[in-house]
Design a protein around this nucleic acid. Structure first.
Lengths: 234, 234
DNA sequence: CGCACTATTGAGTGCTGTCAAGAACTGTGG
DNA sequence: CCACAGTTCTTGACAGCACTCAATAGTGCG
């Protein structure tokens, strides 16, 4: 019987997602494991802190952010998620989400319930899931190291380069980076103030390494940006 | 045929690990999925950066740390792992480890190959794996938020409280925290210098919140420590 | 066109990093 | 058991970077 869910066969993200390496039959079965949301507009919640968590999500299109509110009521952005990336894992430990996820850009995400995992394995998508989880953790590790670097310039440069890598993964131009999130969110994610971020962007623009608009950064000198990203104290 | 591997039936960590919720039969089968290392002493490698990665590890006893070397040859500690915790995930994305793991304390870890995952699921350990992965990501997220907090005191207090939670999970005294790692490693992990960490520890000791020896921290005033951990700029 | 919101720029303070010296711990050998 | 050397940790003085507060400029929207 035809299933209105997944529709992985026609999904533009199928090569980045769990469908990588599957034939048409596998994609059809995969579609029955994945539950895409209706298109969400900027500001719509994918899930909220406190919601029961019985699965994770994979971004199909658009960009999502996750954030938590601390005791003082302040918002901490914990991640940005582009197509093909996994979110919602931290909630799996205790059965309810401890962070919220909302769409930054219009887009959809697919829910993968944990109960579907055995089926996912049997249809040949297990390896892809492992790859996505590993990639997720890899990015988290890189982000952690980047935050350890105290220099604001390094952190911004690293973020841009990491984003560039993600564009390559998506088969897009690695020098044109969509930055749909607000400066406030980005600053929160990078562990600095709005003002510091603004100053860094100004500096990088002034020295000709990038050009920046509100929602897009163009990398002009990737090698020099790499130098900034890797520079230690000096 | 008796299997010399796993031996989950007699493992002191079986309730924290994938064996949680399994009966004797399940534990016996689980033992065939898990490959424990020989006891490793301080400084011995569990795996090295560049090694092929076809699975992850779960700490059975002792404490491990993971670290990466950046372009400048500097070591970045990316995590500390206590019994029942998962490490080695970042390598799964690309098939080889991008970080190294070594024992800080004498201990052993069990390797779980990805090819064993379907078997793990069929014997009833899937849910536990999901729980461990979620917990792993949850800790990573908390660590990230903590690093965003610029204040050194907050970061140290949060680390101690997080460690306290992990002691509860292990069924140990939450006020007596084993800190087998060197100050250098801890400072690296917390994104600050050796000197800053030393100053924070001195401050917390002087104000009566903790007592600290080289390898152990005793929490004297958990509530006040919590206040320090959550204090925003003020 | 004017308002609300977001982003940029400026001036001053404070925390953390850097450099340097001294103290405490660890392990080895006599 | 003690002496000693090497390492690890602590403490101090100073400078630099990022945060705070404040004002200005730019953007989007009705």
């Amino acid at each position: 019987m035809p299933n209105p869910n997944g529709q992985c066969l026609t999904c533009p993200t199928r090569l980045l997602c769990l469908g990588a390496g599957l034939e048409a039959d596998g994609l059809r079965e995969l579609g029955e494991c994945m539950h895409p949301t209706a298109p969400q507009h900027k500001g719509e919640y994918l899930y909220r802190s406190g919601d029961p968590a019985n699965g994770c999500y994979i971004v199909r299109s658009g960009v999502y952010k996750t954030f938590a509110i601390n005791a003082g009521g302040e918002e901490y952005v914990t991640g940005f998620f582009y197509p093909g990336e996994v979110l919602g894992l931290p909630g799996l430990a205790r059965g309810s989400h401890e962070e919220s996820a909302i769409a930054i850009d219009t887009g959809t995400a697919c829910r993968l319930k944990t109960e579907m995992l055995p089926a996912l394995w049997s249809l040949g998508g297990g390896a892809s899931l492992i790859r996505l989880l590993g990639e997720h953790d890899r990015q988290a590790t890189i982000a952690r190291i980047s935050l350890s670097q105290s220099r604001a310039d390094c952190r911004v440069a690293r973020f841009l380069l990491e984003l560039s890598d993600r564009m390559v993964t998506q088969g897009r131009d690695p020098l044109v980076l969509p930055v749909p999130m607000s400066r406030t969110d980005l600053a929160s994610y990078l562990g600095m103030t709005l003002e510091s971020l603004s100053r860094v962007v100004s500096r990088l623009t002034r020295t000709g390494l990038i050009t920046a608009t509100r929602s897009q950064v163009t990398v002009l000198a990737p090698e020099q940006l790499r130098t900034v990203a890797h520079q230690l104290a000096d």
